Deep mutational scan, measured.
Amino acid sequence: IDAAQIVDEALEQGITLFVVNNRLQYETSRDSIPTELLNKWKQHKQELIDFLNQLD
């Protein structure tokens, strides 16, 4: 699994991931984030931050 897949998966569930001051953040209108997704974010945090920083 790679960062792009995780970002896409989040988007499919209505969650936008982004980076502020090198910290992973998210925006969503959902009430809660699925635990499975949160765990993936934690496991791949640095990859996600690097990936999202490249997009900007």
Score class of each variant (00 low, 15 high):
I1C: 09
I1V: 12
I1E: 10
D2N: 14
D2V: 15
D2S: 14
D2R: 13
A3L: 13
A4I: 06
A4N: 06
Q5S: 13
Q5P: 04
I6C: 04
I6D: 02
I6T: 04
V7A: 03
V7C: 04
V7S: 01
V7P: 00
V7L: 08
D8I: 14
E9Q: 06
A10E: 01
A10D: 01
A10F: 05
L11T: 08
E12T: 12
E12L: 10
Q13K: 09
Q13T: 04
G14K: 04
G14M: 04
I15K: 00
T16Q: 10
T16F: 14
T16I: 13
T16W: 11
L17S: 02
L17M: 06
L17R: 00
L17I: 06
F18C: 09
F18P: 01
F18I: 14
V20S: 12
N21W: 05
N21Y: 05
N22D: 11
R23A: 14
L24T: 00
L24P: 01
Q25V: 14
Q25C: 14
Q25R: 12
Y26I: 07
Y26G: 02
Y26W: 15
E27R: 15
T28G: 05
S29K: 10
R30E: 06
R30C: 06
D31K: 03
D31V: 07
D31G: 07
D31N: 07
S32G: 08
S32C: 08
I33G: 01
I33S: 01
I33T: 03
P34Y: 02
P34N: 05
P34H: 04
T35L: 15
E36H: 11
E36K: 08
E36F: 10
L37C: 05
L37T: 04
L38I: 12
L38R: 06
L38S: 06
N39G: 07
N39W: 10
N39K: 11
N39L: 12
K40I: 10
K40S: 04
K40G: 03
W41D: 00
W41T: 03
W41K: 00
K42F: 14
K42A: 14
K42G: 08
Q43R: 11
H44I: 05
H44K: 04
H44A: 07
H44R: 04
K45Y: 15
Q46S: 08
Q46V: 08
E47T: 09
E47R: 07
E47V: 13
L48Q: 01
I49M: 06
I49P: 00
I49G: 01
I49L: 07
I49Q: 02
I49H: 02
I49A: 02
D50M: 10
D50P: 03
D50S: 11
D50H: 11
F51P: 00
L52V: 02
L52Q: 01
N53L: 13
N53P: 03
N53C: 07
Q54F: 09
Q54S: 14
Q54W: 12
Q54G: 14
L55S: 11
D56R: 04
D56F: 11
D56G: 14
